[in-house]
């Protein structure tokens, strides 16, 4: 995969089918409704110390955050719909104005995957042997999304 960054556009080219599929999974992972993912994406301000404050938070703050996150996901979904196939590879292009939404959604997908698969610091550092195929693929997704996110962080502000 090649990634080109210009002042106006970000272009991913020479994407093979495997990576294209992983890219299509970004909004899916970010939108996970599993309890573990929800708990990670929407933590509370006192982590259970003040149950009333946490409940107020869930009622008044979380809906706004959820709406904000969904606007980012919608941008990524729309860009991914424009991914086109040519000469047995895929090309994805989007305006740099969408970069903040991409960074947020990539991070959201990584965090949801990490929560869903109980990814630890040791897993991330490669200090554990992962034999579970789903967890291995989740680690791959976290890595590739992290690579793209890291590249974007070098070129643009949050």
């Amino acid at each position: 995969m090649r990634i080109e960054w210009s002042p106006e556009h970000v272009i991913f080219s020479e994407i093979d089918e495997f990576i294209a599929d992983a890219l299509r999974q970004i909004p899916v992972c970010a939108s996970s409704c599993e309890d573990k993912a929800i708990a990670r994406l929407y933590p509370t301000p006192t982590d259970g110390v003040d149950e009333n404050a946490d409940e107020d938070w869930r009622e008044h703050v979380v809906p706004g955050l959820s709406e904000l996150f969904q606007t980012h996901i919608d941008v990524v979904l729309k860009d991914l719909e424009e991914m086109r196939e040519e000469d047995e590879s895929f090309t994805l292009s989007f305006t740099t104005e969408h970069a903040p939404a991409w960074m947020h959604t990539l991070n959201q997908a990584r965090l949801a995957l990490g929560a869903l698969h109980d990814i630890t610091e040791d897993d991330m550092e490669g200090r554990t042997k992962v034999s579970d195929a789903e967890k291995s693929y989740a680690l791959f997704q976290i890595e590739i999304y992290g690579f793209i996110l890291s590249l974007m962080l070098q070129h643009t502000e949050l």
Binding site: R40, M103, N107, R110, L111, L113, G114, I119, T120, E121, D123, M124, I142, G146, L149, S150, L153, E157, L158
Partner: peptide, 16 residues
Amino acid sequence: NDPINLMDYVAKVFIR
């Protein structure tokens, strides 16, 4: 701390 967030990302959030 969490094991997933990138260190560069965390620092940029603090700046922002």
